[in-house]
Amino acid sequence: MRTEIYEHFHPDERDYVDRASEWISHAGAYHEQKLTDFLDPRQLYILETLASKEDKVTIRVDGGYEASERKRALIAPDYSYLDEENMGIQVLSVTSDDHKMNTLEHGDYLGAILGLGIKRGKIGDIHVLDDGCHVLVASEISDFITMHLQQVHRVHVWTELLPPENLRTKDVALEPLDLTVASLRLDGIASDVYKLSRSKILTPIRAGRCRVNWKVEENPSTSLKAGDVISMQGFGRFKLLETDGVTKKGRFRVKIGKFI
C-alpha cells in the first residue's frame, strides 16, 4: 500500500508523505489532533491528497490571512468542530529607526530568523513593508524570536508580537522580463532568466535543486506553462506570467515575473 502511495510523489517527498500519513491515520484511528508547522503549497497538496482517502478525518488550514502562501493545518477526527480552534499563529512586527532598514529584503529577514536556529516550518509568509516587516510565525517559538532577534543584516531592530488581525500585507513585487526563447522547456527558460548557459543550468536541475510549483523537478526538458512558479536554490524564483505568441523565427515570446 505504501509503495502505491510513493508512486505519486518524488522520492525526496517520501519522509514527509510518511509523516503526513501518520498524522492522518492517528486522527482517524486514535482520535488525535495534529497542528502542523507552516506548509508550502506542495506539502499542503500532499496532505490534502492523502486525507481525501480517509473519511474519518477533517482538516482546517490557516496561514494568518486569506491569501497566504504558507499555511498551518489542523488535522482532527471528522466529528471535530475546528472553526474556533487556535491555529497558533502570531505576527512578528520588526521595526527600526535605522534608515538602512529601507534596503532590507525578504531574504534578509528570513536569514536573520533562521540564523537563530529556527526551523523554516515555524515561519509563514513574510511581508516587507515601507517601515519594517510583518512575519507570520508559529506561536510556540514567537517569544524566543522576540527575545533574540536584535539585528537583521547589521541593522538593529525591535520586535513586537501582534494578533493576526493586525497583520499588514504587501503584494509580492515581481520584476518584469520579456523574453524570446527557443522552446518552453524548463532549462531553456531558466537559463535565460538566471543568465546562465544551458550547460550550467543543467547541474542544479539534475541535482534536485529546482522546484516547479513547489515540486522537485529534475527533468530539464519539462515544458512550462503560464502560471508556473519556478525556484532554483541559490538563484531565487520566478513565475511564467504568460506566453505571447511566436516570432517569425519560431521563437516563443514569454512574460516572466522575477520575485524580488
Rank of each mutant, 00 (worst) to 15 (best):
44 L>M: 12
190 A>W: 04
237 R>Y: 09
182 A>E: 12
199 S>A: 09
117 G>F: 10
39 L>H: 09
22 E>A: 09
155 V>D: 07
167 L>S: 06
244 D>Q: 14
59 I>T: 10
77 P>D: 02
3 T>S: 12
57 V>G: 05
52 S>H: 14
77 P>H: 05
122 K>D: 01
172 V>N: 12
167 L>Y: 11
203 T>M: 00
223 S>M: 14
86 N>A: 08
68 S>T: 06
146 T>E: 03
164 P>I: 14
12 D>M: 04
207 A>H: 04
74 L>F: 12
222 T>C: 01
214 W>Y: 15
20 A>Y: 10
167 L>C: 12
221 S>C: 07
30 Y>H: 11
60 R>K: 15
121 G>Q: 06
235 F>V: 04
63 G>D: 05
173 A>C: 05
15 D>M: 11
218 E>M: 09
161 L>E: 04
200 K>L: 12
194 Y>E: 02
4 E>D: 10
82 L>C: 05
134 H>W: 01
171 D>H: 14
247 T>A: 03
171 D>P: 11
209 R>V: 00
28 G>N: 03
181 V>K: 00
126 I>M: 00
12 D>W: 07
22 E>M: 06
4 E>W: 09
164 P>N: 08
213 N>H: 06
223 S>G: 07
44 L>A: 02
74 L>W: 13
91 V>K: 05
194 Y>G: 06
119 K>A: 15
9 F>P: 04
161 L>V: 02
183 S>K: 01
176 P>N: 00
255 K>A: 13
72 R>G: 02
7 E>Q: 12
245 G>S: 07
91 V>M: 07
25 S>I: 12
234 G>Q: 08
77 P>I: 05
110 L>G: 04
236 G>Y: 10
20 A>K: 02
241 L>F: 08
40 D>H: 06
146 T>R: 07
256 I>N: 08
18 D>G: 07
187 D>Y: 04
199 S>C: 03
18 D>V: 06
251 R>W: 12
210 C>H: 02
167 L>N: 10
46 I>W: 00
79 Y>E: 09
30 Y>V: 03
57 V>T: 14
116 L>P: 07
149 L>F: 13
206 R>N: 08
36 T>G: 11
102 N>G: 15
71 K>M: 13
159 T>N: 03
133 C>L: 01
186 L>E: 09
45 Y>C: 04
16 Y>G: 05
248 K>F: 07
129 L>R: 08
257 G>P: 07
71 K>P: 10
52 S>F: 13
121 G>A: 05
251 R>Y: 11
